[in-house]
Design a protein around this nucleic acid. Structure first.
Lengths: 191, 191
DNA sequence: GAATAATATATCAGTTTGATATATTTGTCA
DNA sequence: TGACAAATATATCAAACTGATATATTATTC
């Protein structure tokens, strides 16, 4: 028990290991495909770059948590990764531990917070740009949800569905906030 | 115009500069005090560590954006930082640029997404822990809002107030999602 | 037939975190 | 009064991660 030295008093800070193991627990794929998943399916709550994906995959292979298979065809280099039973144990071990950190880093809020340096006009612009972006994200998320609704017998899709619902709920509340914030600013300006 | 090489086609990726300049635009303070602000006032939308604060302060001084003043008393080392006019220009320049990235990194959602490896029972536990945490955060945010409501003549506090309202709105929607997600799981289990 | 987009792996400098080291002062409680 | 814990304060480092870039092939569009 007690994989990867969590007993040594050090926090389990490297998350990319589990993100990639998680993706591979669904199906075998290439590093490129993992990046695409991070940019589409997971993008509303988690990110990841090539600079983190490829080195982590090599490390996971050395640790025996994934296996490589050269599936190059013609001249196109292609390495397909699969999760091992040991990798799956490691993933489950992590999944059962309590969450260490949920973090929001919204530059929009940062610029809004320091906004009195440039005035309410600047704040309003940032809120409007944020509003437009949220509307776009909501369209995407609603498409995801509609699509998913057809496959809810599958347990994997049930979990996916819950995260999409989270996204929809939060983006809807962002839009409400945008509306109220703009009204509040108008009220302040009126006086 | 066009401070700090944004013209060279490189993204302005270092955010800590502006976080610290922003804090100093409100009032002069020490690095330790800046860390406290990040851990209290800003913690709902931005973080920061000592390992990033102190080196950045030294860099900002070299660039002429802040000035140091030794305010040690008795044996306690203490350096008070103040923003310069050039630093303020640099801050305003950044504030007027469009937001580059708003990012959410919720480990809770990650564990939920991959949760079919450990089953719905594990998912429920993560949701419940998340729910408890959100309730606590909401209490803090509501205290902030109540407190702030007294000082809304001040423009700095108006901006602060809008960000607190954002936090309240989102945490309330998180709680709604927790409720609905638990109901959904129960429904799935019933079948 | 040429240009552009997509597939695919890989690396690197710069940024940030989380932890730790060090030292003093203030507050608590017995 | 004395002992212990908490708060104040600066500083550094390994490890993690991002954003950008390099390289090369195949597929698509015009």
């Amino acid at each position: 028990m007690d994989l990867e030295g969590a007993s040594k008093g050090m926090a389990n800070t490297k998350k990319m290991d589990y993100v990639l193991l998680g993706l591979l627990s669904h199906e075998s794929m290439t590093g490129y495909e993992m990046k695409k998943r991070l940019d589409t399916t997971l993008r509303f709550f988690w990110g990841g770059s090539y600079g983190s994906i490829y080195p982590t995959l090599n490390q996971l292979e050395k640790e025996g948590k994934v296996t490589k298979e050269d599936t190059s065809s013609n001249g196109r280099e292609k390495i397909s990764y699969s999760i091992t039973e040991y990798g799956r144990e490691s993933l489950r071990d992590w999944l059962r531990k309590p969450v260490e950190k949920d973090e929001l880093r919204y530059e929009t809020l940062l610029k809004l917070f320091f906004g009195n340096e440039t005035g309410m006009e600047g704040a309003k612009e940032h809120i409007e740009r944020f509003e437009e972006k949220c509307k776009g994200e909501l369209v995407v998320l609603n498409m995801f949800a509609e699509n998913l609704a057809q496959y809810l017998e599958d347990d994997t899709h049930k979990h996916y569905y819950l995260t999409v619902k989270f996204g929809i709920k939060t983006y809807e509340s962002y839009l409400e906030w945008c509306k109220e914030a703009k009204e509040q600013i108008k009220e302040w300006e009126g006086k």
